[in-house]
């Protein structure tokens, strides 16, 4: 499989996430689109790790692939921590202004 297919797929998913962040007004949906962008980047990292595992097949190919995939694992850990704090913030906003529409969140006062 060509690496360009994976690049194109990841870029399409990333752009769908960006357009979703721009056009949706619901804070939870914006958050989900950010998760989609993180997953697109993870997919591209894994594809690149497999590409490098081929190119350095003579020596230490296992190590290169493992390093990139552990990097993806840490990205997933940070995303899980981020989601727990972010959803707590969204629940707090809903408790204060009874809406999750980001058009109502454009002021920090009150």
């Amino acid at each position: 499989m060509d690496i360009k297919a994976y690049i194109a797929l990841s870029l399409v998913l990333f752009t769908i996430g960006i357009v979703g962040v721009l056009i949706r007004r619901n804070a939870i949906l914006i958050f989900m689109c950010v998760e989609l962008m993180l997953n697109a980047v993870n997919l591209l990292l894994v594809a690149f790790s497999k590409m490098h595992a081929v190119s350095t097949a003579a020596k230490a190919s296992v190590t290169y692939a493992s390093d990139a995939q552990i990097f993806v694992f840490f990205i997933m850990i940070v995303a899980a921590a981020e989601v727990s704090v972010g959803l707590a913030i969204i629940v707090m906003l809903y408790r204060n202004i009874h809406s999750v529409d980001v058009n109502f969140l454009n002021r920090l006062k009150n």
Binding site: M1, D2, A53, Q69
Partner: peptide
């Protein structure tokens, strides 16, 4: 380089 599917034990 091409991505080799279903080979390699790095994952």
């Amino acid at each position: 380089q091409p991505v080799l599917l279903k080979t390699g034990d790095g994952g």
